[in-house]
Amino acid sequence: MTAPVSLVGTVGIGRRIRDAAFRGLLYAAVGVALGTLLVLLVDTVNQGRPKIGMDLYRNFPSARPARAGIQSAIYGSLWVVGLTAVMSLPLGVGTAVYLEEYARRDRWYTRLIELNIQNLAAVPSIVYGILGLAFIARGPLGWGPTIRTASLTLTLVVLPTVIISSREALRAVPPSLRQGAVALGATTWQTVWRQVLPGAAPGISTGSILAVSRALGESAPLLLLGGLAFISFNPPAGPAALESPYTVLPIQVFQYATDARQEFHVIAAATIVVLLAMLLLLNGAAIAIRNRYQRKW
């Protein structure tokens, strides 16, 4: 008879120390990410606290700190992001539907379009600014430093993200749904329009809202497109806004942050709080849609 061998404690002390150290390193990594996020939020709110209030909204951007506000930037951001959404949604969803439902995988041009979108998603946003400067603000279109220039450029910036997230949403719709529709005699488009798109709608909206919220925080390309100016008026209501000069919230943050005077850093921090609140609202809406409407197939 062999004596019962205990397997407890066979992990040697050296290994146990290394296991604990590794676990510690992982906690440290998570701590760095979360800690930075926390410090960033707390520090920014603290810095901006004296300026957070209705005066920030009532006043327009100004070189005098006591009178400086962000009203035209709030409306500018709403216009630019709204137009970006209007343009990027049909383009992005259309491309996604083409790639998922129509394109033939084995063709070289399908592969080219896919690789191209992957690359575009990682092209530095300031390069889009250069494109906007050469082709949209000046050059062939020559729209100048206007809201439509900014929106069209940002549309190109967020388009790859809209495409990628819409494709994921389309892929989540089970093939059996398509097969059922086709078996009943529906054409591809009827299948897509009446079965696939309604099924993918929650996923597409969630992904698109997140993509468009990127446009709200984007500033690098707009530096090249005349977004940096003290704009002391709101864009006019109606189509005339398209040709109006503009400023947006992230650009206003940049402008106030680059001023050496401390009072302006307070305004920059307060502007960041407004910007983050708007982003949180958008992301909250995206998550609410996901939780409320998402279907498990």
């Binding site: 383009l91 129509y102 379009i113 690359n119 082709f135």
Partner: peptide, 27 residues
């Protein structure tokens, strides 16, 4: 309808290719 839709969708897909072409040309 099917043909028109397919052409339209291919059109939207070509916007992203056009973007790359424009980036290269503008640079």
């Amino acid at each position: 309808v099917e043909q028109v839709v397919k052409a339209g969708l291919l059109g939207t897909a070509s916007v992203s290719v056009l973007t790359t072409v424009l980036i290269v040309f503008s640079l």
